[in-house]
Simulated assay, not measured.
Amino acid sequence: MGFIRTHQGDRVGADGLVWGVDPMCRVLSEHGLHIAPSTYYEHIRKRPTARMFADAAVIDAIWKLRQKMMFYKGLGSRKMWIVLRRSED
């Protein structure tokens, strides 16, 4: 998806052809990477969900804990979950 976004609208060759999403998807499909143009446009329009925001908050809390205390860097997921639950109280 990033490749298409980066190169969309680039001028190619001496005649100055402009690459669009459809031709790029067609060329990528010829090389074994099947992406439909509708999939690309859906990905562009997609907004962050509540779950994405919640996951980002948890990742941020883990990062802050690990910066605050070196001991927390060695904790696995189960013990880190216990520490995070305890810190909410």
Rank of each mutant, 00 (worst) to 15 (best):
Y41N: 10
G16E: 05
F53Q: 13
E30R: 05
H34G: 05
W63E: 15
R86L: 11
V12G: 01
I82S: 06
R85I: 01
Y72T: 10
H7A: 05
S29P: 00
A57P: 01
M69P: 01
C25V: 00
I59M: 14
R5P: 01
R26D: 10
C25L: 03
V18W: 00
K68V: 06
R66S: 04
M24P: 02
S87W: 01
A57G: 05
W81V: 02
A57C: 06
I4M: 00
L75W: 06
L33N: 08
S87H: 06
I44W: 06
V58P: 00
R5N: 06
L65R: 08
I4E: 03
Y41R: 15
L33Q: 12
F53H: 14
C25K: 00
H7W: 12
K79N: 07
L33T: 13
S38P: 01
V58R: 13
I4F: 02
V21I: 15
G9S: 04
A57T: 10
P23N: 06
R11V: 09
A56L: 12
G13P: 02
R11L: 10
R5L: 08
I62T: 11
D89F: 03
Y40M: 13
G13M: 03
M70D: 11
G9Y: 03
D10P: 00
M69C: 07
G74V: 05
Y72R: 01
K68G: 05
G13A: 07
S29L: 01
H34R: 14
Y41L: 09
F53Y: 11
K68R: 11
Q67H: 14
K79Q: 09
P23A: 03
K46V: 13
W81D: 08
M80Q: 10
K46E: 15
M80Y: 08
H34N: 08
S87L: 10
F71Q: 14
R26L: 09
Y40I: 03
L28H: 04
R85C: 04
F53I: 11
I62E: 10
A61E: 12
A36F: 04
A14M: 04
D89C: 00
A50G: 11
A57W: 01
L65G: 01
M52I: 14
S87Y: 01
R85S: 05
H7M: 11
A54M: 08
K73L: 09
V27Y: 14
I4S: 02
K46S: 15
G9K: 04
S87P: 01
I44K: 10
V27P: 03
M1N: 04
